[in-house]
Design a protein around this nucleic acid. Structure first.
Length: 150
DNA sequence: GCCAACGTTGGC
DNA sequence: GCCAACGTTGGC
């Protein structure tokens, strides 16, 4: 089992939205590296930190679990969607998403607190200029953070 | 295949 | 709203 950190803008899908819906497709990823993580590396049962980005209080807000393998992201075919991709067709989808299910909401663990721990210094999300919305988390990082979410 | 211009991300 | 960083695009 692998661990991940997945960024979501809470104005679009927050941890409370996930709690209310139970399961959501992780739509809207338009970066090949993040897509490939979903396509090639994620497995059902993998756990992820649900991270709130581009908001007043960026940080880890909860836990979720991968519950369906990568499939075509429906928003790429929808001309009304901001995620529409005119070069994608149902025959040749360009963008994929996994489904994630709610595990639990945690306290908000702010980005600044993550930064304060030398044990977490290697996390991609803490690197200067990082923009990747899905990144792997090591077992050591997962356990270290989990202990601080209780 | 290079690379400059442009767009996006995302914290502050 | 600013701006650093970085991915993508498209002309050549």
């Amino acid at each position: 089992m692998a661990y991940w950190l997945m960024k979501s803008e809470p104005a679009e899908v927050s941890i409370d939205d996930l709690a209310a819906r139970g399961t959501v497709p992780w739509f809207g990823v338009r970066n090949y590296q993040a897509r490939n993580f979903m396509r090639d590396a994620m497995r059902i049962g993998d756990r992820a930190f649900f991270y709130h980005s581009s908001c007043a209080e960026p940080g880890i807000a909860g836990l979720c679990e991968i519950c369906a393998p990568a499939h075509a992201d429906a928003t790429q075919f929808d001309p009304a969607s901001p995620y529409f991709d005119p070069k994608a067709t149902p025959d040749k989808p360009r963008w994929l998403c996994v489904d994630v299910s709610f595990v639990r909401k945690t306290r908000l663990l702010p980005l600044a607190e993550l930064r304060a721990h030398p044990e977490l210094a290697a996390m991609p999300i803490l690197q200067r200029g990082n923009r990747l919305s899905i990144t792997p988390v090591t077992a050591a990082e997962w356990n270290f953070i989990s202990e601080r979410l209780l």
